[in-house]
Computed example of a mutant assay.
Amino acid sequence: MRVLFDDHIFSIQSHGGVSRCFAEVIVGLQARPGVQVVLPFRRVINAHLLDQPDLDVRGFLGERHFPGKRTLLRRHNRSLVHRALRRGAFDVFHQTFYDAELIGLLHGRPMVVTIHDMAPELMPETFASPEDIHPGKRALCAAAAAIVAVSETTKADLVRLYGVDPARVEVIHHGLSQDAVWVPSRRARVALPDRYLLIVGRRGGYKNFMGVARTLAAVLTRRPGLHLVCVGGGPLEEMERQPFLDAGCAGRLHQRTLDAGGLACAYAHADAFVFPSMYEGFGLPILESFANGCPAILSARSCFPEIAGDAALYFDPDHPDSLADGLDRLLGDPMLRRQLVDAGRRRVRDFTWGSAVDRLLALYRHLPARY
């Protein structure tokens, strides 16, 4: 079986959840007997793909950054993908992002589309131009032989908002990447405060950092030795710092940019991982926190209970005081912390890339009969 992937996510994303997931899938499929992964492109900017030594891909113009670099790379790779689709030397085409213009090049061969979330459709007010986020998503869902949703929650949102037949949607959960786990013997510890709460990823819009910032500042004020570390998401903005300035604890608010090993270390040494987002399609940081023995307190929203089960504490993001109550419980009860850490380590075993690849391969093999 020949499975073709396009360049899209690897040409526009240097790091990120979607590209990391497709890199894991590609590597997993390539290791399966009887499966040939077809990558019509050779140049990418994506670290997750470049980290795979068995893939014949290389970087694009080194470390140089200049306006239009991604556009130039995308234009070049897209022409190679077009050529490969026209040639038809594949059995299944799996899109890595949302490019509706490729539909006309399929010539009857089946296409699979993965839907990672429905955030622009559900919360358009949190995006400057929600209609421009994933403009080809609906058309691709209509044209696909099968749709992969990364959670039951995402599937339900997709069916409700797009009117897609549920029978065409297969739920395949993500797995945990090996480099997401901190191994003390292999990696030096990152310089971080002795005690801290951890927030990971983007903070704006529906990610809801501002919705809990004053609550977190109040928690820090009551606990003088506690810090808040934000990993990723870019430098903190003035409005993000303001609640901590007002509370007199701005010196204990930090932002760090870390590689995968550094992030794993940050999870492993945090007092708690806080995930205040109002919506996620899956929530990979939940698995990362569990795998590194970091207790998690999550918004009681979207897919979080589906992924975390009873291995996390939950709070109502509409009532931020419930986050403070949860943190007080977690930080003040060592037995509860141990219970959550143990439950998280058990829970994360249910999410593997091997299982995800098995299910994808089964889906691919049934496509000709469905299409």
Results as ranks from 00 to 15, higher is better:
242 Q>K: 15
125 E>Q: 11
209 F>I: 02
212 V>C: 06
252 R>D: 02
214 R>G: 13
241 R>G: 02
136 G>F: 11
261 G>M: 06
178 Q>N: 12
355 S>A: 13
233 G>Q: 08
22 F>W: 14
99 D>W: 03
191 A>L: 14
328 D>Y: 00
117 D>S: 05
117 D>F: 01
229 V>L: 05
246 D>S: 10
210 M>I: 04
370 R>K: 05
169 V>R: 07
230 C>L: 14
244 F>R: 00
289 S>H: 01
286 I>T: 00
122 L>M: 13
238 E>M: 12
193 P>A: 09
57 V>P: 06
28 G>V: 01
72 L>V: 15
95 Q>H: 12
345 R>Q: 15
234 G>F: 07
40 P>I: 01
69 K>F: 06
281 G>I: 02
148 V>Y: 00
296 A>H: 08
114 T>L: 05
143 A>P: 01
181 V>F: 00
28 G>Q: 01
153 T>F: 07
210 M>L: 10
251 G>S: 11
48 H>Y: 09
63 E>R: 08
271 D>T: 14
36 Q>I: 12
99 D>C: 13
335 M>C: 06
111 M>V: 09
69 K>S: 10
241 R>I: 14
319 H>P: 07
320 P>H: 09
301 R>A: 06
30 Q>R: 12
251 G>Q: 10
188 A>T: 04
294 C>F: 02
178 Q>A: 14
178 Q>F: 07
189 R>V: 13
336 L>C: 07
59 G>T: 15
116 H>N: 09
101 E>T: 12
220 L>A: 00
196 Y>D: 11
199 I>F: 07
53 P>W: 08
58 R>L: 10
109 R>D: 00
98 Y>P: 02
276 P>D: 02
230 C>E: 02
19 S>G: 14
57 V>G: 04
231 V>T: 00
347 R>L: 12
350 D>G: 11
318 D>Q: 11
304 F>D: 03
47 A>Q: 11
125 E>W: 12
175 G>T: 07
350 D>T: 13
110 P>F: 00
91 D>H: 03
178 Q>E: 15
89 A>E: 15
356 A>G: 14
176 L>Q: 10
183 V>C: 10
10 F>G: 00
51 D>Y: 03
309 G>A: 06
121 E>P: 02
2 R>N: 15
41 F>E: 08
136 G>E: 15
20 R>H: 03
136 G>R: 04
213 A>S: 08
120 P>C: 11
207 K>F: 04
265 C>E: 11
186 R>G: 08
324 A>I: 05
247 A>Q: 01
146 A>T: 01
159 V>G: 05
154 T>Y: 01
275 F>C: 11
130 P>D: 11
285 P>A: 03
235 P>Q: 04
367 L>C: 04
70 R>W: 04
336 L>H: 06
119 A>H: 07
331 L>S: 06
368 P>H: 05
24 E>P: 09
360 L>G: 01
192 L>A: 09
94 H>W: 09
54 D>S: 11
99 D>T: 13
122 L>C: 12
18 V>Q: 01
73 L>R: 00
112 V>G: 03
325 D>K: 04
351 F>E: 02
253 L>S: 01
255 Q>V: 04
101 E>W: 07
312 A>T: 09
330 L>Y: 01
103 I>F: 04
278 M>D: 02
271 D>L: 10
361 L>I: 04
273 F>I: 05
173 H>D: 11
15 H>D: 08
139 A>D: 14
299 S>I: 14
